[in-house]
């Protein structure tokens, strides 16, 4: 066990799985970053943010493949390789680039198994960065997990910390279905205790980062940290919150969400993705359908407005959910009462 950053946790997960299983290969734009460069250093970058640094040196060019800037071809190749005996981990860099290769994910990889009558396995992981808060503007800041969650056949992972990232990525690589693994770009330097050994965290089981009596906060990815910060402040004001991290948006741990809402009677959902048809909507619908009777107040969603992500810092700050907004939402649900029905 030692302190590791989110970036190191992911690098270690990739390294340990590549050592364990020779069919695991990496591909993506600049995952080595240096092929064909005049420095002659093939392992120059290790990804635009250095997450895959050092892997080419250990595993060689057959298993760590720099690609042309050509998402449709290499994401499709990853799908084809997965169906024919490899376990590729393809890096899409920014998840916003999925516009260039959605067919390969949505119509190919996700549907092989069903279309082929259960005769295909597609053990593919697509890693990508998501999220605002980096002044990366509208084409490099989206939180597109709802888009993938919508597509049957995909599993979607949004880790909330370095420990979570390592265990969930190893699980993703060992999983036989296509997995979209989304890393918040603001979190790469977050640090916590992470075991040195390989370990897995199963999909579809929410993590309760704290347990409380008054309000359930469901938060996704980077929002989990903000929700915990808000819950710390609220505790000092006498409001105790459960904070629940679903870890995977598909499969979604509906049972734990419903149990927590049954316990607290109040629900706030914090979701960084655009507000129409996002996870907050989905979870609201789940609770409205199956735990309506337990609700003591209307559900609140803490989500950004329905705009592209703005560039300028003050606008981006206005756009993003944060601990203040979560705190305000929790206080608001504590004040509200459901309409008394005679």
């Amino acid at each position: 066990m030692s302190k590791k950053s989110f970036r190191q946790a992911i690098n270690e997960a990739l390294r340990q799985e590549m050592r364990r299983d020779p069919t695991v290969v990496l591909m993506g734009e600049d995952v080595a970053g240096g092929q064909g460069g005049s420095s002659g250093v093939k392992d120059a970058w290790g990804g635009v943010l250095g997450v895959t640094k050092g892997l080419l040196t250990e595993f060689g060019e057959n298993r760590v493949l720099d690609t042309p800037i050509s998402e449709a071809s290499y994401i499709g190749a990853a799908a084809g390789a997965a169906a024919t005996g490899l376990r590729p981990v393809a890096e899409l860099m920014f998840v916003d680039f999925v516009g260039c290769c959605l067919d390969q994910i949505m119509n190919q990889a996700a549907k092989f198994r069903y279309m082929f009558g259960g005769k295909a396995r597609t053990p593919l992981v697509i890693r990508a960065m998501y999220g605002a808060g980096f002044n990366a503007a509208a084409q490099h800041s989206q939180a597109l997990y709802p888009l993938f969650t919508h597509i049957p056949g995909l599993k979607v992972v949004v880790p909330s910390s370095p420990y979570e990232a390592k265990g969930l990525l190893i699980e993703a690589i060992r999983d036989d279905d296509p997995v979209i693994f989304l890393e918040n770009k603001v979190m790469y330097d977050d640090v916590e205790d992470v075991p040195d050994e390989a370990y897995t965290i199963p999909f579809g089981e929410a993590n309760l980062t704290r347990e409380g009596d008054d309000v359930t906060i469901v938060a996704i990815g980077r929002m989990v940290g903000m929700a915990n910060e808000a819950a710390d402040r609220l505790a000092k004001q006498g409001i105790s919150c459960t904070v629940l991290d679903p870890r995977t948006t598909f499969p979604l741990d509906e049972q734990t969400i419903l149990e927590c809402v049954e316990d607290t009677g109040r629900l706030v959902i914090v979701d960084e993705s655009s507000p129409r048809c996002n996870m907050a909507c989905d979870i609201s619908a789940l609770v409205a359908e199956q735990a309506f009777g337990a609700l003591k107040a209307p559900i609140r969603r803490v989500v950004p407005p329905h705009t592209p992500v703005p560039f300028s810092t003050p606008l981006e700050n206005l756009y993003m959910p944060n601990a203040d907004k979560i705190e305000a939402a929790v206080k608001a649900v504590m004040m509200q009462k459901t309409r008394e029905v005679a």
């Binding site: 449709a72 499709g76 190749a77 169906a83 190919q108």
Partner: peptide, 25 residues
């Protein structure tokens, strides 16, 4: 047989992957 394909142009990227499998394996 990696599948007929309902998407025009769906096959060539998949074949790059299958070829990569043959190469790596």
């Amino acid at each position: 047989m990696l599948g007929a394909n309902g998407i025009v142009g769906g096959g060539p990227p998949l074949i790059c992957g299958a070829a990569l499998s043959h190469k790596v394996l």
